[in-house]
């Protein structure tokens, strides 16, 4: 028996992207929530909760890009030119927010204000741009052969804008529930209020994005058993129902645990909501890796390349996950205002 290497790698990259969304999602979310903090001290604590881990979180983005290059080069070389503008926008925004972690500490008055704004705006723009990338991806990319053959603004549409707004709400919810878990006192109370607002926005936008996806893309609707005239094919829909159900359960956990004053559970519920959204979108395009003209098998590198990659990944990924967990363990617990400066 031989391994289905392209499938294995599609799975690894899918998990890597999911890891990125969850991990950088909460620290980008903290940037999105920055303007709503009551005091500069609160902002400092918010940043301190993620300062030791954000760099590791963002490395999953590099794995997403690097992994796609190494395993599915034809997808990498078709998607990135197609999404040139939002990808470059995301990178520039990430530059500002990334250096802000250190620069904000070193700035004096005007500098501190500038880098506070840069962290916040950078996080917001990076998230929005990632939403545009996602929206543009789901809309599909125009190909000629294996190369991108569309225009520079093909990704821009009402649909991709809605997806981007949805992602901003989603990351804000991740950030708020992370803060509920990891802070105390006034900031903790504030984070609860943010979590309620963000959860409501996410609930609404999940429905809006789902309906928009079905309306805009009849092919996706057909996979869910929804015909053009609105008729439902229960046999097609039934096996996929657990996906939206998972989202509903996640939202319910967020709501119930926030009401009961739990600390960790709202964050766990948010992760389930993201898993649901992720799987729900994947159903629409799998096995395409460049929707809707190239499958992951067509985009994959030859088996000898994928096999070498797999040897490395099998050894290294468990180690990476192990020491990442260890770092999170080292920095566990509530973060208070007594950690204003660190090194």
């Amino acid at each position: 028996m031989s391994l289905d290497l392209p499938l294995v790698w599609a799975g690894i990259i899918a998990i890597g992207v999911m890891m990125y969304v969850l991990l950088d999602g909460f620290d980008l979310g903290i940037g999105i929530l920055f303007p709503f903090a009551e005091t500069p001290e609160q902002r400092t604590v918010m940043m301190d909760t993620v300062a030791p881990v954000w760099d590791g979180n963002e490395t999953w983005l590099v794995l997403g890009g690097g992994g796609l290059f190494a395993a599915f080069p034809l997808a990498y070389s078709a998607l990135f030119p197609a999404l040139y503008v939002p990808i470059l926008l995301m990178l520039m925004a990430l530059i500002f927010r990334g250096v802000a972690f250190e620069f904000r500490l070193r700035g004096r008055r005007a500098g501190k204000r500038f880098w506070t704004a840069a962290f916040s705006l950078g996080s917001l723009v990076a998230t929005f741009a990632q939403g545009l990338v996602l929206g543009g991806f789901i809309q599909g990319v125009k190909l000629s052969g294996t190369a991108f053959a569309g225009g520079p603004f093909d990704w821009f549409s009402a649909y991709s804008l809605i997806v981007a707004v949805g992602l901003v709400a989603g990351y804000a919810l991740l950030g708020a529930t992370w803060l509920v878990w990891r802070t105390e006192g006034a900031l903790h109370a504030r984070a609860r209020a943010w979590a309620w607002t963000a959860a409501a926005a996410v609930a609404v936008l999940l429905v809006v994005v789902s309906v928009a996806t079905l309306l805009v893309h009849p092919a996706i609707a057909a996979r869910w058993g929804v015909a053009g005239d609105g008729a439902l094919d229960i046999a097609k829909l039934a096996p996929k129902l657990p996906i939206p159900l998972l989202g509903a359960v996640g939202l319910a956990i967020v709501a119930v645990s926030l009401r009961r004053g739990a600390h960790l559970w709202p964050f766990v519920g948010t992760i389930l909501v993201f898993a649901s959204g992720y799987l729900g979108l994947a159903v629409g395009f799998f096995p395409d890796i460049v929707p809707y003209g190239m499958t992951f098998r067509q985009a994959a590198n030859p088996d000898n390349t994928l096999a070498l990659l797999l040897v490395g990944a099998v050894i290294l990924l468990p180690a990476i996950i192990g020491y990442s967990l260890w770092v999170y363990w080292i920095f566990r617990g509530k973060v208070g205002a007594d950690a204003q400066l660190y090194h």
């Binding site: 760099d55 590791g56 794995l63 992994g67 990659l309 290294l316 990924l317 990476i320 020491y323 990442s324």
Partner: peptide, 16 residues
């Protein structure tokens, strides 16, 4: 890809 897997994660995690 090995640069990401052997180096970037190691640096980023232990930098914290």
């Amino acid at each position: 890809a090995f640069e990401v897997l052997t180096a970037f994660f190691l640096e980023a995690s232990f930098l914290g």
